[in-house]
Write a protein that binds this DNA or RNA. Structure first.
Lengths: 212, 212
DNA sequence: TGTAATGTTTACCAATCGGTCAAATTATCT
DNA sequence: AGATAATTTGACCGATTGGTAAACATTACA
């Protein structure tokens, strides 16, 4: 007889680790495309190559799967912003933040789309995190940027909208990938487009923030 | 007895005009939040204040409703890019394009989210339009921008990524509205944020594209 | 006003949804 | 090996899904 679910998390088996990993991987595939409401447990089960009741043995509900997935992905997602350093010089900090965010869009497009889907739906599962930890982190970095504008190291500008614009331009290449590919055509939509994007964005932001 | 659906579009009744309008309005509400898969006919029927079979009298399937909605919204959505004028001077053209796109994000956020949802899902319903008409329009405008860079009127840069970055930064305020509000907090998330965004983005792009 | 076309609703359908259960299978440990 | 715990599955449940059929109600027009 299976042990009660509450106890399951106390001591985790090898199989548990492996299967939960497998499930969350499949869940990321599905949720990132169709969003929470548009995804079905059967879809995820098929991608994971296991039966639906077996999925539900590891995660009791669709909600629980989604929550576990978001929890797992969130920390890494904010890492680039956390790395944003007050001590460094503005130009190289902004440049490397753009780089890192663009690399995330290239290497983790599903994670980006997972959040984008969540945002479009009004962030029903992460609203508290947005208003709490995220806001605090952004406030902190915005304060750093403000010292740069005050001291004339970069042009005077609203630090929040600066952060938003870096988020949006970089994540665009993950979230709107299909549009980018369609517009650029087969020949320019390969991996080289990330280098082109990096070149453009660095020039845009560095040039746009140069003090007069 | 109802006339065959194919003939329905030949002569349209007053009631047909009104109800189809009502339905598409409700469909925009629902599809823009939950995407195609995540939305149900019942939801749309409830928002529209009519019964499900009545909806299906005007649009035979969920697909047909979605297609009609996208067709209706698409033309207006591309209007700002179409207005992008080769004869004008670069700075004011770019400035007013940003303004217009930002106004669209403010005044038609549901339309923006409708497309964003479509993109996240791999554009299953508009892929041909992206590869055809959209690509042609963007190619045309990119050629205009390239004449500006060649003649030194703006800094040398990839015109496609310039367009992408204007799209992404402006649409961000519609698609990620909930995140923007959460991070800015109650006090700064009012209508004034669009003015702040406009100021920031104009400075960013005009400054970033100024020839050395 | 009569009547034919148009519009609306109730009742319903098969398929799919999220989720349960008990039985069967497999892994673990002594 | 045998016992026990952990894992997996097929059968199933009630609710919801997209969609239909036909009766009913309303509108437009001669």
């Amino acid at each position: 007889m299976a042990i009660p679910r509450a106890a399951k998390t106390l001591r985790r088996t090898r199989i548990q680790e492996e299967k939960e990993e497998l499930i969350l991987e499949a869940a990321l595939d599905v949720f990132s495309v169709s969003g929470f409401r548009g995804s079905t447990i059967d879809q995820i089960a098929e991608v994971a190559g296991m039966s639906k009741p077996n999925l539900l043995y590891y995660f009791r509900t669709k909600e629980a799967m989604h929550r576990a997935l978001i929890d797992r992905v969130l920390y890494n997602w904010l890492e680039p912003l956390r790395a944003f350093d007050a001590e460094g010089n503005p130009e190289s900090e902004i440049r490397s933040y753009i780089r890192r965010k663009l690399e995330m869009a290239r290497d983790f497009p599903r994670e980006s789309r997972l959040f984008a889907n969540e945002m479009l739906q009004g962030a029903p599962h992460v609203l508290d995190m947005l208003k709490g930890p995220l806001k605090e982190l952004v406030d902190e970095k915005a304060a750093v940027i403000r010292t740069w504008t005050k001291s004339g190291k970069i042009a005077p500008c609203d630090p929040y909208h600066l952060i938003f614009s870096i988020w949006s331009t970089t994540q665009h290449y993950a979230d709107f990938d299909v549009q980018v590919r369609a517009v650029l055509g087969e020949e320019h939509s390969g991996d080289g487009r990330f280098e082109d994007a990096a070149r453009f964005l660095e020039r845009l932001f560095i040039g746009g923030l140069r003090p007069d």
